[in-house]
């Protein structure tokens, strides 16, 4: 079975589009991802242990730096968690897909909003976008959707904490504009007719 079929099966073998959690194949892939990130943490901890043996002063300085960052970002994580829960409650993939089927200029608007509101890993969306492509969603709109996934409202508190509200608003605005330009450009490059 090729990769395309595997991904399609893993996403569609649940009831409709309501729950986009993947099937066994993707779960095993996810499990691998999870373990690899834990392995990464273990490696970093080992580096710290080596540093502790070699230079205790540097070890303590690094740990102090780490402690200061953690202390600052914990309250922001609480806000991020609340925003994520609210977003997951109100915005389901079914809701997004329904609006991606709009027509005309509205389509661009809903593709941008859909991209911003969509959650979950990007590979989860490929099969659905592939399916929508077969149903008439053009390449430019798909690219626009994928580009806008970079704007994550629930993560705004942490972004504002580091870069400020003005910067985040300007960056988001610039990204929305560029996403449309990229969409139009891709339609031209892919030879999509109006």
């Amino acid at each position: 079975m090729n990769l395309k079929n595997k991904l399609h099966r893993s996403v569609y073998n649940r009831k409709g589009c309501e729950n986009l959690q993947a099937g066994p194949k993707l779960w095993s892939k996810k499990a691998k991802n999870i373990s690899s990130s834990w392995y990464f943490l273990i490696i970093v901890i080992l580096i710290y242990l080596i540093l502790f043996i070699l230079n205790q002063n540097l070890f303590l300085q690094s740990l102090n730096f780490f402690y200061k960052i953690i202390l600052k970002i914990i309250p922001i994580f609480a806000i991020v968690f609340i925003l994520m829960a609210i977003s997951n409650y109100f915005i389901t993939p079914k809701f997004i897909i329904k609006h991606l089927k709009e027509k005309g200029i509205k389509k661009w608007f809903f593709v941008i909003v859909g991209g911003i509101l969509s959650a979950g890993p990007i590979y989860m969306w490929y099969p659905l976008l592939g399916d929508l492509k077969n149903k008439g969603l053009n390449y430019g709109l798909i690219a626009c959707f994928l580009y806008n996934r970079a704007i994550k409202i629930p993560l705004f508190p942490i972004a504002i904490f580091y870069f400020g509200l003005k910067y985040i608003l300007i960056l988001s605005g610039a990204m929305i504009i560029i996403s449309i330009i990229q969409g139009i450009l891709l339609n031209k490059l892919m030879g999509v007719k109006k």
Binding site: S37, F40, V44, Y48, L51, Q61, L63, F65, M84
Partner: peptide
């Protein structure tokens, strides 16, 4: 968030180390 936890923790640990 739990899925991101090890990678976030690793990133902060590495950043702390790099900064020092």
């Amino acid at each position: 968030l739990w899925k991101s936890f090890p990678i976030i923790l690793s990133t902060i640990l590495l950043i702390s180390l790099i900064s020092t």
